[in-house]
Design a protein around this nucleic acid. Structure first.
Length: 421
RNA sequence: GUGGGUGUAGCUCAGUUGGUCAGAGCACUGGGUUGUGGCCCCAGGGGUCGUGGGUUCAACUCCCACCACCCACCCCA
């Protein structure tokens, strides 16, 4: 074995690859049902896009980005998340001015230089939704509703945590109160939190260190510091979720690691596991479009971790699609089998049938062995039957077989009958 | 970035105190038996024992380094 995949990357093969594709189909179909349209943006972006949006002080920008200089001396990064690129494209296309209301979904690989672990890779896939242009709480609820439905469809058990972290006018007041409180308890905080206190005090709130947890329990509650506008918005989000029968938990300690969030933030957490527990998360980012040079537009979005979803999904099937194998008893029949196969493929496309047709080569025994392993049905050509325009249709699971007409339409009817039986 | 565990055929694993120990089962390929796969029988391919050094007459086996994977922390998707 000469070459190995890079650390923290993954090859998708066999059933895993099939499940991956199936996830994308499910997620994008559902997104389309909610009126979201696809957007595809580059994997490489300028470094500054993320330091401006995700935040200079965030862990992602400080230590997790893949960065390099291209031949023109530009500072490039492999995107660590999907929102910044989407917003950049939105502003660059002038949509903020010409057509500001946009509901978009994206899908693709993201990159973060971290130590790999189960459910955590250096290259990982995200499926995300962004609703840009609406300030109304119903869109926060829509994004959450979508994610809730998708994860439920996929058979994932989760807990939804939500919080509001305020806006530009009320958060500074809270921040000040928090810093004052934390400073008076500074000696009880862990080392990282003592430095967080300087750079990003809100992050202290979701520290898992026991001593910090105790301090956090009596910390000022952000909900009490929200301005009227933010409070009303949050109340409406909660009311709407209740009407939609979506269970959630208000978690005043939920703070996201990305700087661009305002007001609503949420995380879908897996019940059983405590680490790598977020399968999906997101929130509102009302200033990001403006911060990236566009006209001010409010927005809300979600990012869903594909690997984690696949890890916990119980309903995405692992079974391959239904295969029909063509086999021939003697060499002379081979060309007939192949033309038959080609006609069957045409018909299957025409009638939109969920069937695939395969063949092997070599000895008859080898063909049958291949069929037994890879197909549910076999169409077998024998000299005697073929002379009378007949073939053998064999169910490879039950071993039942019948001599049937070679004619395409009736052959397909027979196949359908076996499948539905 | 910190700590712990693991690393022998595609997979699951044996390998005795360093000296025919490079093996088994499954999988794979070919053949036999059934006008047609699975059962059975015969044969075959496949490994520089994670990589690189060191000790030794001799290393899969001892020592060191590195790499990869897993787990926990951290962080998040």
């Amino acid at each position: 074995m000469r070459y190995k995949k890079l650390r923290g990357t993954k090859d998708w093969l066999g059933q895993e690859a099939e499940r991956f594709v199936l996830f994308f189909k499910t997620a994008s179909d559902l997104a389309e049902k909610f009126g979201y349209k696809p957007i595809i943006t580059p994997i490489i972006e300028p470094h500054e896009l993320f330091s401006r949006s995700v935040g200079e002080a965030s862990d992602i920008v400080q230590k997790e980005m893949y960065e390099f200089e291209d031949k023109g001396g530009r500072k490039i990064v492999l995107r660590p998340e999907g929102t910044a690129g989407t917003v950049r494209a939105y502003v660059e296309a002038g949509l903020d001015k010409s057509n500001p209301l946009q509901k978009l979904y994206y899908f693709g690989p993201m990159f973060r230089y971290e130590k790999p672990q189960a459910g955590r890779q250096r290259e990982f896939y995200q499926f995300g939704l962004e609703a840009i242009g609406w300030e109304d709480a119903s869109f926060d609820a829509e994004i959450i509703d979508y994610t809730y439905k998708l994860l439920t469809m996929l058979g994932i058990k989760f807990k939804l945590h939500i919080n509001s972290i305020g806006c530009k006018s009320c958060r500074p007041k809270y921040r000040q109160a928090l810093v004052e409180y934390l400073n008076s308890n500074k000696d009880k905080l862990c080392k990282t939190c003592q430095s967080r206190l300087e750079i990003n005090p809100l992050r202290v709130l979701d520290c898992k260190e026991e001593s910090c947890k105790i301090v956090n329990q009596s910390a000022p509650n952000i909900t009490k510091y929200l301005c009227d506008n933010c409070r009303e918005h949050f109340e409406e989000v909660k009311k709407t979720l209740e009407k939609l029968n979506i269970e959630f938990l208000v978690d005043p300690l939920l703070v996201r690691g990305l700087d661009y969030y305002t007001q609503t933030v949420f995380e879908f957490k897996i019940r059983e596991s405590k680490s790598q527990d977020a399968v999906a998360s997101g929130g509102r980012y009302n200033h990001l479009i403006e911060d990236l040079g566009g006209q001010p537009q409010p927005a809300v979005g979600v990012g869903i971790g594909v690997e984690r979803v696949l890890l916990y999904s119980s309903t995405i099937p692992k079974k391959s699609p239904l295969n029909v194998a063509l086999c021939w008893r003697s060499k002379e029949l081979k060309p007939h089998a192949l033309t038959l196969k080609s006609s069957l493929v045409n018909k299957a496309i025409e009638q939109n049938l969920n069937l695939s047709f395969i063949h092997h080569s070599g000895s008859f025994k080898a063909q049958m062995k291949f069929a037994g392993k890879n197909a549910s049905l076999a169409i077998i050509l024998f000299e005697e039957e073929f002379k009378q325009n007949k073939v053998v249709l064999k169910n490879m699971v039950t071993s039942e077989q019948h001599i049937v007409d070679l004619e395409i339409a009736s052959l397909l009817e027979n196949i359908k009958n076996i499948i539905t039986a």
